[in-house]
Computed example of a mutant assay.
Amino acid sequence: MKKLMKNSVFRVLIIIAGNFSLGVFLFTYIIPNSLSSSFTIWLTIALFAVFMLVFTITMLCEICYDEASKHLVISADLKKAYEWMMRMKKLDVLGWYKDRYHVFLTIYYRDSVMMEELEKLLEDKNFHENQSMELVYHYNKFIVSIYNNDEELVNASYNKITDIYTENIGKKNSRTALIYSLPMINAELHYYFKRYKKANIALKNVNTAKSNKRELAHYYYLKACVLFHNGNKAESGKNIELASEVYPQGQFIKELGVEGRYA
């Protein structure tokens, strides 16, 4: 988390130092020693300018992404995270950050209980470009199908998720980002099928020490739902309070409730 907070300042310094170094290199070495005609000089300057522009835009996108991540992970401020992510999208003229943008939108739509928007987003072909994005696709299909009470799709999506985890857990040099908690996914599945005791056991396997505020809110919220249906309404209420405390902007906490939760 401290690393995230320092990244933005570091990237600004990189932009300044990088552009300055390129300018010095161009005008003190390349042009005096390698170029003779005015055409080649101006062509080289133009190419360097394009490179510097791309470099600057890339670093600015990284800054926006770092700020969005900081607000989401550290502050649990979904609105500010969304604002920074929209800035990144506007700057990303080359489309190099579309994966990060789409992953963030799945979080934003889910936490805002915008399931129709989430379902429509998952139609984008970008979710099938690599296995990491395939995992994001199947996980969010799993969430949407729970919300829509589509038992067949719940099982199908869950099987796809576990296949990806089975293939990659313990695999050396795996490029697939396993960004979701498998015990939480198991708890979601058991809860959906009203296997509340199994859901509670799965929740005990969640490593909350490594969870950020948003992830903790989902953990406390699901635990509240499980406890409620296990007849422990007092503890359920405490966990709802904990979820609301760590993630005040988590609309799912207020909107879905614990009695008829499907997302």
Rank of each mutant, 00 (worst) to 15 (best):
E67N: 10
H190E: 11
Y221H: 12
M5T: 11
S21A: 14
Y109S: 11
L22F: 10
A187E: 08
M59C: 11
G237A: 09
R214W: 04
Y247G: 13
Y82P: 10
A177C: 08
M88F: 10
R87S: 05
I30F: 02
L222P: 04
G257W: 05
L78W: 13
V73F: 06
V154Q: 06
K3P: 01
S244I: 06
K141W: 04
V246R: 02
G231V: 06
I74Y: 04
N7S: 12
V258S: 08
V93D: 01
G237M: 07
H102T: 08
V103L: 12
K238D: 11
N33G: 14
N168Q: 09
L222H: 03
T166I: 10
M184V: 05
V246N: 01
L4H: 04
N186T: 11
R110Q: 14
T166N: 13
M86I: 13
S174T: 10
I63G: 01
K171T: 15
F27I: 15
F142A: 14
E151I: 04
F252C: 11
G95V: 01
F252K: 09
W42Q: 11
L43Q: 13
A81Q: 09
H138Y: 09
Y82S: 15
L105K: 11
F104W: 10
R100M: 08
N186Y: 10
S69P: 02
E123V: 11
L60F: 00
R175M: 11
I16L: 09
Q249L: 05
T58Y: 04
V246E: 00
Y109G: 14
A217Q: 07
S211T: 09
V12F: 10
A209G: 07
M59F: 14
N159C: 12
A199L: 07
D124L: 08
W84A: 07
M52K: 11
I169H: 02
L60G: 04
N126L: 15
F104M: 07
V258G: 00
D99S: 02
G260H: 13
D66P: 03
R100Q: 15
Y29R: 14
L182N: 03
S8Q: 04
K172T: 13
R87V: 04
V258Y: 05
D124Q: 14
F51R: 03
S34K: 13
L26G: 03
Y180V: 02
I30D: 00
Y180F: 10
H128Y: 15
G18T: 05
N212I: 06
K98A: 01
L94N: 10
S8I: 12
L256C: 06
F10D: 09
S211P: 06
S174R: 03
K204E: 14
S181R: 07
L182T: 07
M1I: 05
E129F: 03
T58F: 12
L178P: 01
L182R: 12
P183D: 08
R100C: 00
L72F: 06
R110C: 13
K6D: 10
K80N: 09
F55Q: 01
M133V: 03
I143A: 07
I240R: 07
Y139E: 14
V246C: 01
E123M: 10
I14M: 05
I16M: 03
D99F: 00
N140W: 09
G250C: 02
T28A: 01
E259D: 04
I14T: 04
E134N: 13
I146A: 08
I146H: 06
N7P: 00
K120N: 15
L60D: 01
E235F: 02
T208M: 08
V12C: 06
R195S: 15
M88L: 13
A68D: 05
F142Q: 12
D111G: 08
